[in-house]
């Protein structure tokens, strides 16, 4: 095996690893704030990629109608709650946000010449369709049981994953799609050749990580999320709405997921169920970080990417087996170094 191949494998591994790193960050974030193990993270990757593909094909993406439907359900739930709390004055705002905006977006997608729009606009439209699904799913599936055990929330996550997976098949069919690169071609430096799309992926990943860091360090909402992650009750007493924190963290997770899909679909064919395995690889990274540390999680995710690209070279049939076996040494190490008795949840 020569230097060229190494370079190729490393480039491939780091590119995929960057995507896994993004996903693992979102997983750690959602877990820290809401205690939800967000199995459906991968579905957002697929929805993002396939929604963009539909827009580029000049079709209104079916996900926008899903957005309208979920918005209607979320509005229904919120109105029911508002009526019970005798706060009827909130109903117009609830309807506007949950139903009005999605309908407006659906209207735009019906009339706009989607295929000929610049890529940036197509990507923005994609994100506008997919990202609000995150907080709406939180509202409908998780918020009613927000105080339940981690175990119950995990089972809810699996159920949400099942539903989104089946819906993905319904919306997009079984065929996979690829979207065109942001920039075609490659950059040669000496003996090394870098695909522009790989550079885009790595660059944007770094930017997003820096952006998330700034969000948590500099903004009030970011600090509110961190406070909720540290102590839910304490945050509540300080006037931070845990519902808001949950929706916000799900919005961020959806953003990261959908954007990962947009980034990765020029280099990998995305099927309706591709996202699930990608999300799980993000999980392997997150588990390496103990579902708590952002930097270790992202390093772990890059490691997963590298391991994956090397094992696809040597033993491609066993690629998935090798990648998922990586968590065994991590769990062994964590198990041997931990000394606490797990405390009950009430």
């Amino acid at each position: 095996m020569d230097f060229q191949i190494h370079l190729l494998l490393i480039q491939d591994g780091v590119t995929n690893g960057a995507i896994y790193a993004l996903l693992s960050l979102a997983l750690v974030l959602v877990f820290a704030v809401t205690r939800v193990i967000f199995i459906p993270q991968g579905e957002f990757v697929a929805y993002g990629a396939l929604t963009l593909a539909a827009i580029q094909a000049g079709k209104a993406p079916p996900t926008v109608w899903f957005l309208v439907a979920l918005g209607a359900a979320a509005a229904g739930a919120d109105i029911w709650q508002a009526v019970r709390e005798s706060r009827g004055s909130r109903i117009p705002a609830i309807l506007g946000i949950n139903l009005g905006l999605p309908l407006a977006l659906a209207g735009i997608l019906q009339v706009a010449p989607l295929a000929t729009l610049p890529l940036v606009v197509q990507v923005i439209l994609t994100l506008l369709v997919v990202v609000p699904l995150g907080p709406m799913i939180y509202r409908l599936a998780y918020q009613p049981v927000a105080e339940a055990t981690v175990l119950l929330l995990l089972i809810v996550s699996v159920a949400v994953h099942l539903a989104l997976l089946g819906l993905g098949l319904f919306f997009f069919g079984a065929e996979g799609t690829r979207t065109p690169s942001f920039t075609d071609g490659s950059l040669s430096i000496g003996p090394a050749t870098f695909q522009y799309q790989s550079l885009w992926i790595i660059g944007i990943t770094v930017l997003l990580i820096v952006g998330l860091f700034a969000f948590f360090e500099r903004t009030l909402y970011g600090k509110a999320l961190r406070a909720t992650a540290i102590n839910r009750t304490g945050a509540k007493l300080m006037g931070i709405s845990t519902d808001m924190a949950g929706k916000l963290s799900f919005a961020l997770a959806a953003l990261v997921g959908a954007f990962s899909g947009v980034l990765v679909s020029p280099v990998t064919t995305i099927y309706y169920d591709t996202g699930f395995l990608m999300g799980l690889k993000g999980f392997v990274g997150a588990i390496i970080g103990g579902l708590a540390s952002y930097p270790i999680a992202s390093l772990g995710a890059v490691m997963v990417g590298l391991l994956e690209s090397y094992s696809s070279f040597w033993a491609s049939a066993y690629k998935e087996v090798i990648v998922f076996t990586l968590i065994i040494p991590v769990l062994v190490w964590r198990s041997l170094t931990t000394h606490h008795v797990e405390e009950e949840e009430h």
Binding site: V150, L151, F324, I327, R334
Partner: peptide, 16 residues
Amino acid sequence: LSGHFLPLGTIAWGIS
């Protein structure tokens, strides 16, 4: 480990 590591471990085991 905490209670959620068993289910996560079994996901990896199921796929592998």
